[in-house]
Design a protein around this nucleic acid. Structure first.
Lengths: 147, 147
DNA sequence: GTAATTCACTTGCTTTTTGCAAGTCTTATT
DNA sequence: AATAAGACTTGCAAAAAGCAAGTGAATTAC
């Protein structure tokens, strides 16, 4: 599945970004991959934000089609697939980082978050390296207690 | 109209950003304000992306309610309103900048865009100052030829 | 001073997208 | 051979987006 470049060729840079990854669920999937190192369908499904399974499927397809992520069979368990960030996907890290930086100044920041923010300021290269080789940069939040 | 903080208090930083400004139309309105210096309802409506008027109205209300923009009557034309970025809104500039930077490496970049990207690298402070005092940092694109 | 205009929206309706529950298909385990 | 895990698909209801037309206050034109 390949992306049709015609649509964007004369568009603005923000419009291109927005069309490619600028919706709630795509951004949350990218967060799951970059921050928590998630790589599997059921890991994305398990996020606290409760994405619907059909919506997750279409988002993964779209991100793959845009060249942000790639999909391969897990060699160790052939009924599973593994999603990874491509170079194009890894290059989105600064966007995610700036969103976190912005949010942090407008919401309560707990210890786990503070630690990550400090690292953003002091070890940006290390964070980018971790994202590139799929090392989680912060522990995933505990599952929200069910009603 | 005030935002209810309960919803986000224990959420993640990306989720907070996504809920606040992370949808197609909000991001395009922010672009219009930051890059092109747009400040009026009919200016937003006139963007090439063709936002529907009812959708624009709800987005402006949401952004205002989240404290990203503020709305005042135009003192020189009292049937008009002027929207401005708040400090919280200006603080989103790095997110917009990183989206542009990312997009620029994955799409064709014309001369106008190249000029802005150079300025992002060489005069970041100047750009942030322009955004803060509502000076357009690039000319708006020509209106797309109607069908 | 009344009529036409501008500006910023609303309203009503259709279409598209999302959300939810259940089902399918492939590969693996018992 | 039967059961289960993993990754989706399908069908349907609900919410959001898109479209066209209408409203109401402020302004200019006659």
């Amino acid at each position: 599945m390949k992306h049709d470049p015609k649509k964007h060729d004369s568009d603005c840079m923000i419009a291109y970004g927005v069309d490619t990854f600028g919706d709630r669920w795509s951004l949350l999937v990218l967060r799951d991959m970059m921050l928590y190192g998630k790589r599997r369908y059921n890991e994305f499904l398990a996020s606290n934000e409760q994405i619907a399974t059909n919506v997750l499927a279409t988002r993964l397809k779209h991100l793959e089609c845009e060249g942000i992520i790639s999909k391969e069979r897990d060699p160790e368990n052939r009924r599973s697939f593994v999603y990874s960030l491509t170079e194009k996907g890894v290059a989105l890290a600064p966007v995610i980082i700036e969103i976190m930086r912005w949010s942090s100044s407008h919401m309560k920041v707990n210890a786990r978050r503070r630690k990550l923010l400090d690292r953003i300021d002091n070890d940006r290269e290390g964070i980018l390296a971790d994202i590139r080789n799929q090392t989680p940069i912060m522990p995933p939040p505990p599952p929200r207690a069910a009603l």
